Simulated assay, not measured.
Amino acid sequence: MYSIGPLTVAPGERAHGLIPVGTSSYGVELGIPLIVVNGVQDGPVLCVDAGVHGDEYDGQEAIRRVLAEIDPATLRGTIVGIPCLNTPAFEAAARASGIDHLNLNRIFPG
């Protein structure tokens, strides 16, 4: 089994979910989306991420497409995909977050 946040994925399975990070002022749960592909054999864990800038969509779509094509039955190890690290910027279709107006790429480690 592989667990990250509230998501647990059995060997040979894939799953998606959110790592909760808070609640918006209007009551909607905020989270960072995850896609996990857990191979049938033990092995290393690889994390790939995109969406530091909410208006850069290519990396986000690449993660979705590549992880959809990976067959967990032939995978050794686990792949964790985070297609959108900066969901407030994505929702604003902007480089910076609409919450604090900061560029996530410029404030690491934050």
Rank of each mutant, 00 (worst) to 15 (best):
residue 25 S to T: 07
residue 105 N to G: 06
residue 2 Y to Q: 01
residue 106 R to A: 07
residue 36 V to Q: 06
residue 44 P to K: 15
residue 72 P to N: 02
residue 18 L to T: 12
residue 82 I to T: 09
residue 101 H to N: 13
residue 65 R to E: 09
residue 96 A to S: 12
residue 47 C to G: 06
residue 63 I to Q: 02
residue 25 S to A: 05
residue 35 I to A: 09
residue 72 P to W: 00
residue 103 N to I: 00
residue 36 V to W: 05
residue 58 D to A: 04
residue 81 G to H: 04
residue 31 G to P: 06
residue 29 E to G: 14
residue 21 V to Q: 10
residue 87 T to E: 13
residue 34 L to Y: 06
residue 75 L to V: 05
residue 18 L to I: 11
residue 14 R to H: 15
residue 34 L to N: 12
residue 18 L to S: 09
residue 94 A to S: 10
residue 109 P to V: 05
residue 28 V to G: 11
residue 25 S to K: 01
residue 15 A to H: 14
residue 40 V to A: 11
residue 55 D to I: 08
residue 110 G to K: 10
residue 36 V to K: 08
residue 41 Q to K: 13
residue 26 Y to S: 07
residue 91 E to P: 01
residue 106 R to T: 10
residue 46 L to C: 11
residue 101 H to K: 15
residue 44 P to N: 15
residue 33 P to C: 07
residue 28 V to C: 10
residue 58 D to W: 04
residue 66 V to N: 04
residue 14 R to Y: 03
residue 78 T to H: 03
residue 107 I to P: 11
residue 95 R to A: 00
residue 53 H to M: 12
residue 76 R to N: 12
residue 38 N to V: 04
residue 71 D to Q: 13
residue 15 A to T: 10
residue 84 C to S: 05
residue 53 H to D: 08
residue 19 I to R: 13
residue 103 N to W: 08
residue 23 T to K: 09
residue 73 A to S: 08
residue 78 T to I: 01
residue 60 Q to T: 02
residue 61 E to G: 06
residue 49 D to V: 11
residue 27 G to D: 01
residue 99 I to Q: 01
residue 56 E to Q: 04
residue 76 R to V: 08
residue 110 G to C: 07
residue 64 R to K: 03
residue 18 L to P: 03
residue 35 I to H: 12
residue 10 A to G: 00
residue 75 L to G: 07
residue 50 A to F: 01
residue 59 G to H: 00
residue 93 A to M: 11
residue 97 S to R: 05
residue 77 G to E: 05
residue 48 V to S: 12
residue 54 G to N: 02
residue 31 G to N: 10
residue 91 E to R: 12
residue 101 H to I: 08
residue 10 A to V: 01
residue 102 L to P: 03
residue 49 D to P: 00
residue 52 V to T: 14
residue 25 S to P: 03
residue 36 V to G: 04
residue 30 L to C: 13
